[in-house]
Design a protein around this nucleic acid. Structure first.
Length: 592
DNA sequence: TGCGTTTTGTTT
DNA sequence: GATTAAACAAAACGCA
């Protein structure tokens, strides 16, 4: 492993290119173009691993002005803090506290008046205008967290130096005794940081979306766009009319679930709720009231119009790009998430996700990631062998002596904590034939139910929540609720170790793909293409048409490399990972 | 009036 | 009877 050349960078309102700093840089905040120039020069001269307080905060505004800037490698202090702590806070105060082994809860929150720090001022690191960045107790000074570090070039330098020192401390935690000699957590820090860079880039460049195609789809499914509020109301009324006629009551508010439920009840249909699957079930029965089917259809159209209608299109799509805000690691398991409806784009709209002229999309789906990841983290020999097959569920079905469908349900039920129905029966076979895999899941669930933390393969901490004590005199209802809450926490942690580890493998792959694309050319137009969507187990790339076949081949090679590295780093056996890759013009087209 | 909760539905 | 996880997002209701 080569020694890393760490360079820290911050954006200061005044001054740039700190004369006294070899490794700590401040770039001008006002002049984004100049800042991007400095970064691009350092990137090409020294190809450092950039230490950033947060890629989102630093790079987001910078890319708005200089969208072509690409940093190859980073150490994102916020991302690594989330990884190590599993908490929600990742601001500099919390990052510094966690890296120093202090209680992040005691760290000053942004905007908080910090009298204690002002009184007992400390020497600390650096020598900014008003003392160093740290208080005597090791916490970050509140005024520095609020931006006082930007007062002078010297204090900006101290702020960047603190970033370097903090990265060093995080690194020690990642490689320390708790890592037990494994490189997993360090690798995760790198790939999570790369994912942070990617998240900012995805937000800036957006997903190619053909507005004409989208508008056609919307016209067909929900009608033309409404120019005025009156028109919108008229369209709503027109959509409602047939259902209300069948209902025989024009006063029912179809958008109010309680009103719908009451209306159905008065016609002899007493339902616990009005969810679509329930309505569909009833509508399919012989002699069913025709309003049920009508209501289901109405719901689909209404849902589409509200969530992904013309308003959505106008709000989120501009210049042929659907833009969203991306998070590199969200929720307990650390998946990538996006706003703007990007991750729940209805199938009907996928034809609109279309490559620009002269370009193609390359889509790649991981096959059965979660059971394969379970094979790695558990080291279960039987599951590792099953993963050697293109279709993992076939060998599992043979071993359990059941059909493939049942085997699939059993594997998923084990990972998600399902105990009832057909899955419950198949589960016994899983425990018998794959004891290490199920054992790991049961232990994760036990820890969750006991309020203990669990960790993903790459070392992400998933916090348990301490169960609240139930009063001894509590009734059966309260006890039941308590038991249910414990079971839910168990399912949560059981799922998090698999889903979270899968997210890490996915990001390692995405980071590898991104790195290769960056080396394919010196400027965006000369490169093969770029990643435009990450969807849990699917990558979508927008590439030059002449490079598409090569990129598609490379995606598979990158998966092999990333997966082999990841298996080794987390201390698991080598497990086969597969991907379906296809070169397509739009996202709706079939996989390879 | 505003904010938090409930209901619903889409994706993986 | 009972249905497994995670996200984002909108509208309506309920409470203060």
């Amino acid at each position: 492993m080569s020694t890393e050349d760490l360079l820290a960078v911050v954006r200061a309102p005044a001054g740039l290119g700190l004369a006294d700093a070899e490794r700590a840089w401040a770039v001008p905040a006002r002049d984004a173009a100049a800042a991007a120039e400095v970064l691009a020069r350092l990137e090409s001269e020294r190809s450092p691993r950039w230490v950033l307080w947060s890629a989102e905060d630093l790079l987001g505004p910078l890319l708005d002005a200089a969208p072509d800037l690409r940093l190859a490698r980073a150490w994102d202090l916020a991302a690594v803090c989330r990884l190590l702590e599993g908490g929600a806070r990742d601001d500099p105060s919390a990052v510094v506290a966690a890296a120093a082994g202090l209680d992040p809860g005691a760290a000053p929150a942004a905007g908080q008046l910090d009298l204690g720090g002002l009184v007992e001022e400390a020497g600390g690191a650096g020598d900014g205008g008003a003392g160093g960045p740290l208080r005597a107790d090791g916490h970050l000074r509140a005024d520095w967290a609020d931006g006082a570090w930007a007062a002078s070039p010297a204090s900006a330098a101290a702020w960047a130096e603190l970033a370097l020192a903090t990265a060093g401390r995080q690194r020690e935690q990642l490689t320390g005794p708790s890592a037990s000699g494994r490189a997993g957590p360090l690798h995760t820090a790198w790939s999570e940081s790369a994912a942070s860079l990617l998240a900012v880039e995805l937000g800036t460049s957006g997903l190619p979306l053909d507005v004409g195609v989208a508008a056609e789809v919307l016209d067909r499914l929900v009608g033309p766009p409404a120019g005025t509020e009156r028109e919108a109301a008229a369209q709503r009324a027109a959509r409602d009319a047939p259902v209300l006629r069948l209902l025989g009551d024009a006063t029912v508010d179809l958008r109010n679930p309680a009103a719908v439920r009451a209306a159905l009840a008065s016609r002899g249909l007493d339902l616990p709720d009005t969810r679509s699957w329930r309505l569909e079930q009833l509508a399919a029965a012989p002699g069913a009231h025709p309003v049920l089917a009508a209501l289901v259809g109405w719901r689909q159209r209404e849902r589409f119009a509200v969530a992904h209608g013309h308003r959505w299109l106008a709000e989120h799509v501009a210049g042929g790009r659907l833009r969203a805000t991306w998070s590199a690691s969200d929720g307990g398991a650390g998946r990538m998430t996006a706003t703007g409806g990007v991750h729940s784009l209805p199938r009907e709209l996928r034809p609109a996700v279309r490559a620009d002229p002269g370009h193609l999309l390359v889509r790649a789906d991981l096959g059965q990631v979660e059971p394969r990841v379970l094979a790695v983290v558990s080291g279960d020999e039987g599951l590792v062998r099953a993963a050697a097959a293109e279709d993992l569920y076939s060998p599992v079905a043979r071993r359990l002596g059941v059909g493939r469908d049942v085997a699939k349900v059993a594997v998923l039920a084990a990972m998600y904590g399902q105990t009832s129905g057909a899955a419950g029966a198949a589960l016994a076979g899983m425990e018998r034939e794959y004891p290490r895999a199920t054992g790991l899941l049961v232990e994760a669930a036990r820890r969750g139910a006991a309020g203990e933390d669990v960790r993903t393969a790459g070392g992400r901490r998933v916090r348990g929540h301490r169960p609240e004590d139930v009063p001894v005199e509590a009734g059966t209802a309260a006890l039941d609720a308590h038991r249910q809450a414990l079971a839910a926490r168990g399912r949560y942690t059981r799922n998090a170790v698999v889903q979270g580890s899968a997210a890490e493998l996915f990001k390692a792959w995405a980071a590898t793909v991104r790195a290769r694309l960056l080396t394919s050319g010196p400027s965006p137009s000369e490169r093969d293409g770029e990643v435009v969507l990450c969807l849990h187990d699917e990558l979508l790339l927008h590439v030059r048409a002449d490079a598409a076949e090569r990129v598609a081949r490379d995606l598979v090679a990158d998966l092999d490399a990333a997966a082999a590295r990841w298996c080794r780093a987390v201390g698991g056996p080598p497990v086969r990972f597969t991907a379906d890759v296809a070169v397509v013009e739009d996202w709706s087209q079939a996989k390879g």
